[in-house]
Design a protein around this nucleic acid. Structure first.
Lengths: 244, 244
DNA sequence: ACTTCTATTACAGTCACTGTATTATCTACT
DNA sequence: AGTAGATAATACAGTGACTGTAATAGAAGT
């Protein structure tokens, strides 16, 4: 759930990841519907991700070996690594999508809007669109449990967010004509991404605590607003030591 | 350099890390001077860290195997892992010290001071005390080069900082009687640690760029002040899109 | 010298991940 | 339909971080 949208989407599988073969299997003649034929490669990839998720849910990420996943999916271990360059990628599919969308939103913000304002719009919009049916809820819950239980996956998630922050930082640096030693773009970018992370964490906690579906978007949005307001107004009025 | 002090200090080696043996080899009768006898364990540990650093500097963290380090230090591979639970720990010794000091400073802040204010005092004090002789500069430079060249180490560093942030977050949550779903303590903690990270990055960059020793503390402090001021006053006035 | 720790080693193994060469399978073209 | 050419999967052999356990060597104290 490096992207809130992943909660409400089939989590991960769209397109190849290696980038090397991004150009090779293009949309062939047939318009590719969601449940459509799908190439062999795509089928295998999906099967692997699903098998892995099932096993991770049953026993935890760190207690399942790649060899087991391969066997359960009826392929060789090597095949798993042909599709996913690391075990963690079986959970986090590829999602440049989030990064791209975030950057586009910031880049295209109207005059007078701050980077924070743009990110606020972006995230509120995304979380506002969150919607759950039983199936999605189930997947989101499984994912939350898996990630919560695995330091390895949490580390990977930090890495993903760090990448987003880097990209945002770069954008802000360019826009502000800031020199590379100016720390402000970095602080801004990282702080904004922290709010995103916090929202994810709060949604996950709510999901695992059994909060009903229709309350989830509200919680996420509250979390978001609280965090962004704090950053917008400044931290120096928060956590002030009082006598007693 | 998860701790600015590490730049100006013998980087890493004071005390055991496993915690399990924290109580076992206590200060024995003799007052332990810096260059003093040191137990066999301590000597081996230091030798390993030094050997490793040397090799990492020569060829890069990821291109040196633990087996090579062991051989170069005249011990078994297993011995390395008896002393350091992961390869990365050969670079980042143990430093609960930073965490403890940071938390103490926040905990003990005077009435009317915000968490940000306390962290500002803390960091300014630390960076203000930075001092370099040729030897320290050399070590800092080697460390900067090693870390800059290794994604593995950067990931580890993020993990360390995440731990600091968790601890600070917990402290603020307790102080503010915030309920666990309140995101503000987390945002505050992470944002403040981001400033720390940014300062480290700026010092490293300066060191690698050959900036003279006596300018380094000034740069660090400027970076710190810039970052903290931004967070103190709020992000909503920064990176505002202007016409054109 | 003898016991008692503790540090180190020997050894055997697990698991993520890589590279290469080979076989199976699928697609396109004639 | 049949076959060439790509593509997916496999077999195989390895590297490297890391673990556990039992045996040995070294330092310290009685």
């Amino acid at each position: 759930m490096a992207d809130p949208r992943e909660q409400a989407a089939p989590a991960a599988q769209q397109g190849a990841q290696q980038g090397a073969q991004r150009q090779s299997p293009p949309q062939q003649g047939a318009p590719q519907r969601q449940e459509a034929p799908a190439t062999r490669k795509e089928r295998t990839r999906r099967r692997l991700a699903e098998t892995a998720t099932r096993l991770f849910t049953e026993r935890g990420f760190d207690l399942v070996t790649v060899a087991e996943i391969a066997e359960a999916a009826g392929v060789t271990e090597k095949t798993v690594f042909n599709h996913f360059k690391a075990k963690e990628d079986l959970v986090y599919g590829d999602d440049d999508a989030f990064e791209t969308a975030l950057l586009d939103c910031v880049r295209a913000r109207p005059e007078g809007e701050s980077a924070l304002g743009a990110v606020r719009r972006f995230l509120l919009d995304r979380y506002g669109r969150m919607a759950f049916d039983a199936d999605r809820r189930g997947r989101a819950q499984a994912l939350a449990a898996i990630v919560t239980g695995s330091p390895t996956l949490q580390a990977r998630e930090r890495r993903i967010h760090a990448r987003y922050a880097d990209a945002l930082c770069e954008l802000i640096t360019a826009e502000e004509h800031a020199d590379p030693t100016d720390i402000r773009p970095r602080i801004t970018a990282e702080a904004l991404l922290t709010v995103h992370r916090g929202s994810i964490a709060s949604v996950r906690a709510a999901i695992l605590a059994g909060v009903p579906d229709d309350e989830l978007p509200g919680r996420a949005i509250t979390t978001l607003r609280t965090g962004l307001d704090l950053l917008a107004h400044g931290l120096d009025d928060y956590a002030v030591r009082t006598g007693g």
